[in-house]
Design a binder for these strands. Structure first.
Lengths: 228, 228
DNA sequence: ATCCATAGGTGTCTTCATGACACTTATGGA
DNA sequence: TCCATAAGTGTCATGAAGACACCTATGGAT
């Protein structure tokens, strides 16, 4: 008996969606973008930005399109997290959803457009009630982000091109939800060749000003060492 | 415009499947179970064990069922790896596949039943030509396994209840594809409280015999420290 | 009874990464 | 000129990890 014969195209009635866990950094806190559900089911709760997949669309494409429809942002950094497929996870009908993490730069974000869609930013440690199994989606995304942030430069997607060390440290503290020693943080950072110090200072956060840095992707490609 | 309105149940024509990357340990090598494709497309190539998902079936259930149908094994350790969803990955039609890693104990395996299904074990560093995108599936599964094996006790699913330290070390060497120093390996192992030494020896591999150990899941739950 | 072949088992040293810790410096505004 | 404030700097102690060589227990051969 061939396994394939058990199911054919007619019998399978499962919809496939993507859901995006969109992270941003603001006020020294990691935040997550959610939309308010105006319709049943779960009316009044909040949910992730998501949508169904097109028939001829790659999974990654679908995630980018869904995000673009909401935010107008393109070329956003996205990573697949995992598939959620409990049979009863969505009361409207059988749906399997693939979750994606998106990291976006708040300052490039069109906040008005967000409002139009009924979306809102929430600090990740103070989320409202979420629909369906979206809490587990957010949790697995945060866990993955925390794990990867120590060994890969992904967190830099949450900062502008030029940034200061105190900014970067605050970002890491926000993501990891713990405070870091600034001398140790700088020591590690100096061991990563891809960080290049500029001759420019950011004077917005202190009288003394802090030197700006940038992350050189080429250097990173040559020397993948990254440990913060 | 609501995103949901773009697609309804009628328009989406995507099948969803699971594919299992089944690992076993034999002859001091990590091996992977594959089936020979007797039919087009890709006739003659080898492929992973897979099947479509039932309408009322959890994703994890589907993976277990597919594995059971082939091997007769139940209660196998399985972990989701990721979803593969390129639009053109399967020439027969649009299919999204969720890959699962399964770790099984070769000695409990019914080898005759495997043969009936045209399945065969291959060392992971010497795989035959694989159908579709199954090579990437295998690679991502191996990468994940190598990462997780250092910090979690998953590899123990590949060994019997009672095992010797040399066996465990050979397993790690096989998975990681590098040789380890046995003194360093034992030192680390002794720091993990969940390993308990038995008063029994396995005499099958040497004249002197090697002490048997077992992994105490309760102890591990109390003290999650694991580092090999 | 002795010898031998073989895999099992054991400690030390060096190096390096990490965490803990306190003071000086540059600057703008009062 | 002073002050408030965030930026920036170095050392020490601890512990993990890698490199490294010899003794031991046993079964089988003689």
């Amino acid at each position: 008996m061939r396994i394939e014969s058990l199911f054919d195209q007619q019998t399978q009635q499962i919809k496939i969606a993507v859901d995006c866990i969109i992270f941003g950094f603001n006020n020294n806190r990691l935040e997550c973008l959610l939309i308010h559900r105006g319709a049943e089911p779960q009316k009044g709760k909040w949910s992730l930005i998501g949508g169904f997949i097109g028939n001829d669309e790659d999974l990654d494409e679908a995630a980018n399109r869904v995000l673009f429809n909401l935010s107008g942002l393109e070329n956003v950094y996205m990573e697949q997290v995992k598939a959620f497929g409990k049979a009863n996870r969505d009361p409207r009908g059988r749906t399997i959803s693939i979750s994606y993490t998106a990291l976006i730069l708040r300052s490039e974000y069109d906040d008005d457009r967000i409002e139009e869609h009924g979306a809102k930013w929430f600090p990740v440690d103070n989320l409202p009630e979420l629909a369906f199994d979206h809490v587990s989606m957010v949790h697995s995304a945060i866990t993955r982000l925390r794990r990867r942030v120590r060994n890969t430069p992904i967190a830099l997607n949450l900062l502008p091109e030029k940034f200061t060390i105190p900014q970067l440290q605050a970002l890491y503290e926000g993501i990891l939800n713990e405070s870091l020693d600034k001398r140790n943080f700088r020591r590690k950072l100096n061991q990563i060749s891809a960080f290049v110090k500029l001759d420019e200072k950011d004077m917005s956060a202190s009288r003394r000003g802090a030197f700006l840095y940038t992350f050189d992707q080429d250097r990173y490609n040559h020397d993948q060492y990254f440990n913060l």
